[in-house]
Simulated assay, not measured.
Amino acid sequence: MLAYIWAEDLDGHIGKDGHLPWHLPADLSYFKQRTLGHPILMGRKTFASFPGMLPHRLHLVLTRNAALKEKARVTDNLEVFMTPTEMKAWITAHPDEDIFVIGGASLFTLLKDEVDTLYQTVIKAHFDGDVTMPAIDYRNFDLISVQSGQVDEKNQYPYEFRVYQRKPKDSI
C-alpha cells in the first residue's frame, strides 16, 4: 500500500526554507505513530531536512545525487533510487509493505495516481511558506475519519487529522 502523510496549513503550505513552517508536537507524534516500522519515501531535500536517520524506519530517497547513493551502500535503513523507474520497481517488488510518501511536492505529484491512502493533518492557521501541497482530486477518495486535535500550550494551533481511502476503480 502506498500512503501519503503530510501536514498543511489553510493555504496548502507544507514547507518553508526546507522545514515545516510551524511547530506542532501532536502532528510529529502522529507522524511517528503512523510511520514507525514502515518505509518512508522522500526526495533528497526532504531527507536533507532531517537532523538524522529516523529510528525504526527504512528511508527511501529518490535523487540524482550519486554521493547519496554511495552513502546508502554503507548506511543501514537507507535505500537510494536514481530514477523514478527504479523507485517504482522497488515499490512493485514490495506489495505487502505500507510505504509512506512524506515529501516533497514533486514526489507527491509523481505518485498521485498510485496512492491508496491519505493521512492529512490540516492546521487551521496561515503560515508563510514556499512549498505547497500539489492538488489532489479528492473525488477519487472517501473520507474515512476526521479527528480534531487538542489545542494546548504545546500545540497552539487548531488542527485535525483526516484519513482518506481511494475509492475502488469501478466507483470512480
Rank of each mutant, 00 (worst) to 15 (best):
L2C: 02
A3Y: 03
Y4R: 01
I5V: 11
A7L: 10
A7N: 03
E8L: 12
D11P: 03
D11Q: 12
G12E: 08
H13T: 14
G15H: 04
D17N: 12
D17Q: 11
D17C: 06
H19T: 14
L20M: 14
P25K: 07
P25Q: 10
A26H: 03
L28V: 08
L28K: 07
S29M: 13
S29H: 09
Y30F: 15
F31L: 11
K32D: 08
R34H: 08
R34C: 12
R34D: 04
T35I: 11
T35P: 04
H38S: 15
I40Q: 01
G43E: 01
F47I: 07
A48H: 12
G52V: 14
P55L: 05
R57P: 11
L58Q: 03
H59I: 09
L60E: 01
V61E: 01
L62W: 02
R64A: 09
N65A: 04
A66E: 13
K69G: 08
A72P: 10
V74H: 06
V74D: 08
T75R: 05
D76I: 06
N77I: 05
E79T: 09
F81P: 04
F81M: 09
T83Q: 02
T83S: 08
P84W: 09
P84K: 03
T85P: 02
M87E: 11
M87G: 01
K88R: 14
A89M: 09
A89Y: 02
A89T: 11
W90P: 03
A93Q: 07
H94E: 03
P95F: 01
P95G: 00
D96L: 14
E97G: 02
D98E: 10
G104I: 15
S106D: 11
F108E: 00
L110V: 06
K112V: 07
K112C: 06
K112H: 13
D113T: 12
V115W: 05
Y119F: 13
Y119Q: 14
T121V: 09
V122L: 14
I123C: 06
I123L: 13
K124Y: 15
K124T: 07
A125M: 07
F127G: 06
D128W: 02
D128Q: 11
G129R: 05
V131P: 03
P134T: 09
P134N: 04
A135N: 03
I136P: 01
D137E: 09
N140A: 15
N140E: 13
N140G: 08
N140S: 11
D142H: 06
D142G: 05
V146K: 12
V146L: 14
Q147N: 13
Q147M: 13
S148F: 07
S148R: 06
G149T: 04
Q150T: 15
V151F: 00
V151K: 01
E153P: 05
Q156D: 03
Q156Y: 01
Y157C: 04
P158H: 01
R162A: 11
R162M: 15
Y164D: 08
Y164G: 12
R166H: 05
P168C: 13
K169F: 15
K169E: 14
K169P: 05
D170C: 14
D170G: 06
I172Y: 06
